[in-house]
Amino acid sequence: EKILSLVKEDQEQQLTLLTSVPGIGQKTALFLIVITDGFSKFEKASQLCSYVGITPTTRESGSSVRGRA
Protein backbone atom coordinates (compact mmCIF):
# COMPACT_ATOMS: atom_id res chain seq x y z
CA GLU A 1 0.00 0.00 0.00
CA LYS A 2 2.93 2.35 0.68
CA ILE A 3 4.36 1.72 -2.81
CA LEU A 4 0.93 2.30 -4.33
CA SER A 5 0.56 5.65 -2.57
CA LEU A 6 4.05 6.75 -3.63
CA VAL A 7 3.43 5.79 -7.26
CA LYS A 8 0.05 7.52 -7.25
CA GLU A 9 1.71 10.75 -6.09
CA ASP A 10 4.20 10.77 -8.94
CA GLN A 11 2.98 8.46 -11.73
CA GLU A 12 -0.82 8.32 -11.42
CA GLN A 13 -1.46 8.74 -15.15
CA GLN A 14 0.90 5.88 -16.07
CA LEU A 15 -0.69 3.66 -13.43
CA THR A 16 -4.16 4.40 -14.81
CA LEU A 17 -3.06 3.71 -18.39
CA LEU A 18 -1.32 0.45 -17.52
CA THR A 19 -4.23 -0.91 -15.50
CA SER A 20 -6.59 -0.13 -18.39
CA VAL A 21 -4.79 -2.74 -20.50
CA PRO A 22 -6.55 -6.14 -20.28
CA GLY A 23 -4.42 -8.59 -18.30
CA ILE A 24 -2.40 -5.97 -16.43
CA GLY A 25 -3.45 -5.57 -12.83
CA GLN A 26 -2.32 -3.21 -10.14
CA LYS A 27 0.65 -5.35 -9.04
CA THR A 28 2.00 -5.73 -12.57
CA ALA A 29 1.56 -2.03 -13.28
CA LEU A 30 3.36 -1.09 -10.06
CA PHE A 31 6.17 -3.52 -10.88
CA LEU A 32 6.65 -2.04 -14.36
CA ILE A 33 6.64 1.53 -13.10
CA VAL A 34 9.08 0.82 -10.28
CA ILE A 35 11.65 -1.25 -12.23
CA THR A 36 11.67 1.17 -15.14
CA ASP A 37 11.71 4.33 -13.02
CA GLY A 38 8.53 5.53 -14.68
CA PHE A 39 9.65 4.17 -18.08
CA SER A 40 12.58 6.59 -18.19
CA LYS A 41 15.31 3.91 -18.13
CA PHE A 42 14.70 2.75 -21.69
CA GLU A 43 14.65 4.57 -25.00
CA LYS A 44 12.87 1.88 -27.00
CA ALA A 45 10.14 -0.65 -26.28
CA SER A 46 12.45 -3.43 -27.48
CA GLN A 47 14.94 -2.55 -24.74
CA LEU A 48 12.23 -2.88 -22.09
CA CYS A 49 11.05 -6.20 -23.53
CA SER A 50 14.57 -7.59 -23.47
CA TYR A 51 15.10 -6.36 -19.91
CA VAL A 52 12.03 -8.11 -18.54
CA GLY A 53 12.69 -11.23 -20.62
CA ILE A 54 9.70 -11.40 -22.94
CA THR A 55 11.64 -11.45 -26.20
CA PRO A 56 12.94 -14.96 -26.78
CA THR A 57 16.09 -15.28 -28.84
CA THR A 58 17.84 -18.33 -30.17
CA ARG A 59 21.56 -18.45 -29.52
CA GLU A 60 23.58 -21.11 -31.30
CA SER A 61 27.22 -21.55 -32.07
CA GLY A 62 28.44 -22.95 -35.35
CA SER A 63 26.18 -24.38 -38.00
CA SER A 64 23.39 -26.79 -37.33
CA VAL A 65 22.66 -29.88 -39.42
CA ARG A 66 19.42 -30.51 -37.59
CA GLY A 67 17.41 -27.84 -39.37
CA ARG A 68 15.46 -25.10 -37.68
CA ALA A 69 16.20 -24.15 -34.11
Rank of each mutant, 00 (worst) to 15 (best):
E1H: 11
K2E: 10
K2P: 05
L4K: 15
S5A: 12
V7H: 01
K8V: 01
K8L: 06
E9Y: 00
D10K: 07
D10S: 07
E12H: 00
E12Q: 01
Q13T: 02
Q13M: 04
Q14P: 03
L17F: 07
L18N: 07
S20C: 06
V21A: 13
P22V: 13
P22A: 14
I24L: 03
A29T: 04
L30N: 00
F31H: 06
F31L: 06
L32E: 01
I33L: 12
V34I: 12
V34A: 07
I35V: 15
I35R: 10
T36G: 04
D37K: 08
G38R: 10
F39H: 02
F39R: 00
S40G: 04
S40K: 09
K41Q: 13
K41G: 11
F42C: 03
E43T: 15
E43D: 15
K44A: 10
A45F: 11
S46E: 14
L48S: 04
C49R: 12
C49Y: 11
S50F: 05
S50D: 13
S50G: 10
S50E: 12
Y51C: 06
Y51K: 05
V52T: 12
V52K: 12
V52F: 12
G53K: 06
G53H: 06
G53R: 07
T55E: 09
P56N: 01
T57M: 08
T57S: 09
T58N: 10
R59S: 12
R59N: 15
E60V: 10
S61F: 02
G62H: 07
G62W: 08
S63Q: 15
V65K: 13
V65M: 11
V65T: 13
R66S: 15
R66G: 14
G67Y: 09
R68F: 11
R68Y: 11
R68D: 13
A69T: 07
